[in-house]
Structures are given as structure tokens and as C-alpha cells.
Design a binder for these strands. Structure first.
Lengths: 326, 326
DNA sequence: TTGAAAGCGCTAACAT
DNA sequence: ATGTTAGCGCTTTCAA
């Protein structure tokens, strides 16, 4: 692989001059530029960004730590992050942390070792004290990491409220929440709080069932089936869309008609759901805006590590009305 | 950020010694090790992998170029790649090339500049002559890139055959293929060829409709609706599962019962489809095996760039029977 | 068992 | 307009 020195030799100039040409810096004669460019073409030269970064430049690398890109929500988010960062000349190192705190920790160390310019973290393995020590610009999605790491999220409380209002408006009286296991600090708790806040102003039945997020769809379906078979429910709020899909399926199996017998509201509103399951009423998180915000903040911190940022940036959600409520 | 020299000073040894401790290399006294480890803890030291790689070591970075991770198929594939590579101590730089040849080209340059150890390419912007010049270990998924780049894929021909057999077995006589726009060299052509190969042994109606891959789901749905409304069809083979979902939806709208009036076979069989749309009969590509194969080959090439590999590695597919045929 | 010195490929003063 | 030199943080001979 050709180096800057090779180019210099071939063009008959010094390495510095080649560097200047590459970075379009200082004053160069047209003749020199031409020679250097020719040599670069000839040798198919690509500057070694390792060496460049070693010399104190940025790496133009951003670490992205998420639970996993198989989930459409995070899939869409990664795609958005990747796109927006590409346009600003950054690349991403993708880290699927799953629900494995050990892996997340390992990744964090790697990212530091690789001298990424910053990190976007949206995983859900709470209590990673390492984030505190990492002396790096970090922005978090929807999750508290440490004192000085800004959190960008959508308005979970408002989302819960919208969901409740949709179910109320559709005449549901026997309500059920289905959610993942909610850890104490989880931001999805706000979805529940917003929901309850609306409901408690009315005198209605309301139950809550937790199904572990990491349970397989088959397991989840089983629990949903039990739930639907055992109790009389006419309105369900799922705190994620995928679980909603399972509810729709089980309802169909049990001959429970949506929306006649049962109304349903999901959460997330990814493009995928909007495109392939438009019948589902859901709360849409503004993924694109969230990502724009995160990147904006991150780049600010990268430019000026001392810059003061707010602790929380909360973006509004939207109700996407489908026929699962009416 | 602490450097190796800082550690050396704090531990009262030379940089060389610290390097030896880090790499567990040569002979060290216990006392020295202890001192050095202590200093590393104290300063929260992380070796700079840039510097390390500059000195000729590998970067432990793999570039992954795919059309986009929002699609469940590639989402699952990335997750698999990421997982398997993590276990071998590699990180990935994720490149969503979309259907943008310019972007793919830019990414390729970046990856070279970043001195990734290798590349996994699965995008569909054919004729990227740059791949030829890239003097790097590359493995391709399901797509011809250049003479000496091995292609790993699943058996598209067999997949097409299985799909045809499933439709025949379910008694369909008026068949329809729905596929993306098929470029001359596209491997999905084999899916069609396998399908046709089986069908032509019987005397049946067979039509083919191409819908551009990049069309929005709404556009696709419209065309599907037209198709279903205009012609009498009792068996459809979609060369991807997502389009199958649209077919199911439109069929329902038109009161066409699946599988009574119409049988349907999709393609890909991701976990997502198996979990959330088990009613769809589909051809499952063995994503996990494909990834294992690709990584295996890639690491071989990384270890020994001269090693000879086959041109093609084709893995068997499986029919996943749902209620959309029968 | 440990250290000194050179060098990976590049950039950034500081010359000229 | 161009070149010289030093150095980024690490690994690796070669010596001791």
C-alpha cells in the first residue's frame, strides 16, 4: 500500500508538499499539484487515517451502542444515524450490546481504545459506571447514564397520555397495559405514568402485565393468550409495537374482533409498522428528529468538550391513528 | 488520556516493559507486572489502537457494506455478523450503501483509508470496479464483484424450485411471480430460473411482474392491487417476504382468501417473519450459516492474503411451511 | 529481566 | 512555494 513518501518520491517533491496537496492547505503551484495528483492516481493512493489521527486529528469515527439492530425500531434508528453522520463525514462503529452488560462494557473499552470521537449510547443495561469515567463526548438515547451525559428522548409521558386518550375515545372501559419488565430507572415508566395519569381521572378498570423484553415471541404470545382468554378486556396499551402484533394475532385466534371487541394501541411507530401494519394505532417516536438532535449535540461536544448542554432534550410524539382503535 | 509513557514513568520502568506487560510478551518479573498493572488501573489507561495498528498490527476492524439495516433481512444479517465478529475480537464499521453507487464508492475509500482488515460486501450496486482495485480481503454476499472475490450465497435456484413445488402441491394453476427489478447479473434471477424450471414441466399459466425494489410500500401495494383485481391468479411467488406481506394485505382487502382462493410463497424467512408472520410460507435463507461462512473465509484471507478460495460457496435453503399454501 | 533506539505514516511548526 | 525536522503512541529489534 502506497504511502505519502512514495507519492513524494514519484512526484519529486517533499512529503510535506504532498500532505499540503492532500489537505489543500498552504500555497501550492498548479504544476506541483498536478504532479502530485498524478502520482496519487498512479499508485492508487489512500491516506492512512490511522497515522493522521495519531497526529492528533480526529478519527471521524463514532461509536453507536444499541440493544440490537434486528429490532425494527433500532434498525431504523441506526440507519438514520448512519445516514446523517455519513453526510457529515463520520463513520460508525456498530455495537449491539443486547442485554449483556459485559459486552457493553467491553465495547466501551474498545471504542476508547479506537479513539472514536464520540459515542451515541442507547442500550438498556443500566448502571454502567464506566460511562462516567469515559472521558469522551457521549449522548444517550432515552436513558440515564451519568450526570453530565445529555439524554435525548421522545416524550414518553405524553405518549402514554395519547395512548390513554385514544383508548378512552374509542369507548374502552376495561383496560390493560402490556409492557416489558420495567426496571426502576427505565424511561418507559413514564409511558405508564402518562397513561395512568389520564385513566385515573375516570373510574375504570386498569391492570398491568409485565412480560420480559427478552422473552421469545412464542412465550409472549402464550402469556397474551392467557390474558385475553381469562379476563374481559376491551382496551390494550402495549408499550411496543411488536408486542401489539402478537396481541392482534392472538385476538384473531380467539375470535376477538379488533376494534369491535377490543381496541389496541402500540408504541414506536416505525416506518416498518406504518408501511406494513397501518391498521395499528400507535404512538410514533420521531426517530429522525431524535437522531438529528443527538448528532447535533454530539458534534457540539466534540468541537468543544467543555460546552454546557442541557440534561434532557425531549421531543414530542405523535398519535398515528389506525383502525385498531377507530 | 494517559499514554504508555505515562504508565512507564509512574511504574518506574521503560515503555518497552509496559508494552511487554500489555501484550504479555517476553519475560517479566511478577513485581514489574504488578507495578505496571497498578499504574494502568490508576490512570485508567487504554492502549491507543491507532498507534498500535500504525506499527503494522491489524486494526481488528471489518467494514460491512450492505443496502441498509432497516430491512429485517439485512438487520438480522448485521446482527449476526456483529455477534460472530465480536467473539473473535473484531469490530465492524457499518456502511449502508442503499442503492447509491456513489455512496458505496465513498465508503470503500474510507474503509481503505481506515485500514480495515477486511470487508464484507452485500450491497446491490453492481459494477463497482473499485472493488477490483481494493487490495484488501473481501467477501461478497450473493453478488458478483470481481474475479477473485468469493461469493457466499444461499441456493437461489433451489429456493425457486422449492417455492414452485409448494405452489404446485397446493393445487395452484395460475401462477404469478412478483419480483424486484432484476438487473442482468442479479443472483435473484436464479430464484426465477429455479421456479420456472419446475413450472415448465407442467402446462400452467405463469406471469411475471417486476416492481422496483426501491418503490415505496404504497406504490407496491397499488400495483399488487391492480394485479389481483385484473387477473385470475391462484398462486403467487414473491421473491421477498415483505412484498408477500403487502400481497396478503391486498388480498384481504379484495376479499381474496388465502389459502382458499390464493396461495402465497415468500422468500427470506427472517426470524422476524417466522416470529410475527408464521402464516406465510417462505423460503428461509440460512443467515447464520451464511455469516459463519463469510467470516470464516474472510479471516482466512486476512491471515493469508494469498490463500486460494473457491469462487462460490452456496448454502442450502429451507422451505418454512405456513398456512399461506397448504 | 529490562532498556535504548528506530520507525510505522502522517502533520505542523519553523525555516528558506 | 517548498523543504527540514520533530513527534503523535506504540512495537520491535538489538543490546545489556
Amino acid at each position: 500500500m502506497a504511502t505519502l513518501d512514495d507519492i513524494a518520491k514519484m512526484a519529486g517533491v517533499s512529503a510535506t508538499t504532498v500532505s499540503r496537496v492532500i489537505n489543500n492547505y498552504g500555497s501550492l503551484s498548479e504544476k506541483t499539484k498536478t504532479k502530485v495528483f498524478a502520482a496519487m492516481k498512479e499508485l492508487n493512493y489512500q491516506p492512512n487515517s490511522l497515522a493522521r489521527s495519531l497526529k492528533g486529528k480526529k478519527t471521524q469515527l463514532i461509536g453507536v451502542i444499541l440493544p440490537g439492530v434486528g429490532n425494527p425500531f433500532f434498525g431504523q434508528m441506526v440507519e438514520e444515524i448512519e445516514n446523517q453522520l455519513f453526510n457529515k463525514d463520520f463513520r460508525i462503529i456498530l455495537c449491539n450490546a443486547g442485554n449483556d452488560a459485559k459486552k457493553e462494557r467491553a465495547y466501551l473499552r474498545m471504542l476508547i481504545a479506537n479513539r472514536v470521537d464520540g459515542i451515541i449510547a442507547g442500550s438498556h443495561n443500566l448502571n454502567i459506571e464506566e460511562y462516567q469515567k469515559a472521558d469522551l463526548p457521549i449522548i444517550s438515547f432515552d436513558r440515564y447514564l451519568s450526570e453530565n451525559i445529555p439524554i435525548v428522548s421522545s416524550d414518553n409521558y405524553q405518549g402514554g397520555q395519547l395512548a390513554a386518550q385514544a383508548l378512552l375515545a374509542s369507548g374502552s372501559k376495561k383496560l390493560q397495559i402490556i409492557t416489558g419488565r420495567n426496571r426502576p430507572n427505565s424511561p418507559t415508566n413514564d409511558r405508564l405514568n402518562g397513561f395512568k395519569n389520564i385513566i385515573k381521572q375516570h373510574d375504570l378498570q386498569l391492570d398491568l402485565t409485565e412480560i420480559d423484553f427478552s422473552a421469545t415471541p412464542n412465550i409472549k404470545s402464550l402469556k397474551i393468550k392467557e390474558l385475553l382468554a381469562k379476563k374481559t378486556i376491551d382496551g390494550i396499551f402495549c408499550t411496543d409495537d411488536l408486542t401489539s402484533l402478537l396481541v392482534m394475532r392472538q385476538a384473531k385466534n380467539l375470535n376477538i374482533s379488533i376494534p369491535n371487541d377490543l381496541r389496541l394501541v402500540g408504541y414506536d411507530g416505525t416506518n416498518f409498522i406504518q408501511d406494513y401494519h397501518p391498521e395499528l394505532t400507535t404512538i410514533m417516536q420521531p426517530i429522525s428528529d431524535i437522531v438529528t438532535m443527538m448528532i447535533d449535540l454530539l458534534l457540539k461536544r466534540i468541537d468543544d468538550p467543555e460546552c454546557q448542554l442541557e440534561k434532557n432534550y425531549t421531543l414530542p410524539v405523535k398519535l398515528i391513528a389506525g383502525t385498531s382503535t377507530i
